[in-house]
């Protein structure tokens, strides 16, 4: 066991961890803003609204993230000319952009499914009460359904956030230097295989459990009867 390697390369690992955090946060925020309308559309009676979202959710929840990542990053190369003609190629050329795009779409699909369940879990009486005082459509959705649904969804969403943080390790396979990417590079230079992977694992553990505690705190805060 060579702990000197870890001490020497710790700053690099931390800069990788910072990239991991950035990718996670950006994908989460963008994914959430896609998920809210997607969940609403998924529950619509109109087939034209529902079917495309249903297909999107089925595809991104039914295939491995690694395949999605390769499809968007490497696959876009095959569509190079088409993408260039619409001016999108400069974006798809960047591993960073493809990573965030894939993770955003992936988490949007899972979050939409969580929100769908939560919206359906909003007690009927509360919706009826809203209607009784004259709310309807967007107002009812914004004031009654969504706040309640968010609270119902929070524990499951917390799990999704933890999964996404861990899933970002896959971006190392498309050349990005996140925590996993840096760890693999340091290993290629130092041959300290298990030392560096264990150090990276510990950093992930700390980040994951920080998130777990944050979500537990939020769940307590948002509980209607404050303890």
């Amino acid at each position: 066991m060579d702990s000197g390697v870890i001490v020497e390369h710790f700053p690099r690992l931390m800069s990788g961890a910072w990239i991991t955090v950035q990718i996670t946060v950006i994908s989460l925020i963008l994914g959430f803003f896609i998920a809210v309308p997607a969940a609403a559309m998924r529950l619509a009676n109109n087939l034209l609204l529902r079917l495309p979202v249903q297909g999107f959710m089925f595809y991104f929840r039914g295939t491995p993230l690694l395949v999605q990542l390769f499809l968007i990053y490497y696959g876009s190369g095959q569509l190079h000319t088409a993408l260039e003609s619409v001016g999108l190629w400069m974006w798809f050329r960047e591993a960073w952009f493809c990573a965030v795009l894939t993770l955003t779409l992936n988490t949007a699909a899972y979050t939409a499914e969580i929100l769908r369940g939560a919206i359906q879990g909003v007690p009927r009486g509360e919706v009826e009460a809203g209607r009784a005082v004259g709310m309807s459509g967007v107002l009812l959705f914004r004031r009654i359904i969504m706040p309640k649904a968010f609270r119902i969804a929070l524990p499951a969403y917390g799990n999704e956030v933890v999964f996404l943080l861990q899933a970002t390790s896959l971006v190392s396979t498309i050349t990005l230097l996140d925590l996993t990417g840096v760890a693999r590079r340091v290993i290629a230079q130092t041959f300290a295989v298990y030392e560096v992977f264990i150090a990276a694992a510990v950093i992930y553990l700390v980040m994951v459990y920080a998130l777990v505690f944050l979500f537990r705190w939020m769940e307590r805060r948002l509980h209607p009867i404050r303890q």
């Binding site: 861990q166 390790s169 190392s172 396979t173 996993t180 295989v193 298990y194 992977f197 694992a201 992930y204």
Partner: peptide, 18 residues
Amino acid sequence: IVRGVPELIMLLLVYFGV
């Protein structure tokens, strides 16, 4: 431990590290 460490790290650790 298992739920806090990414699968990829775990896989690489077992395959190359162990």
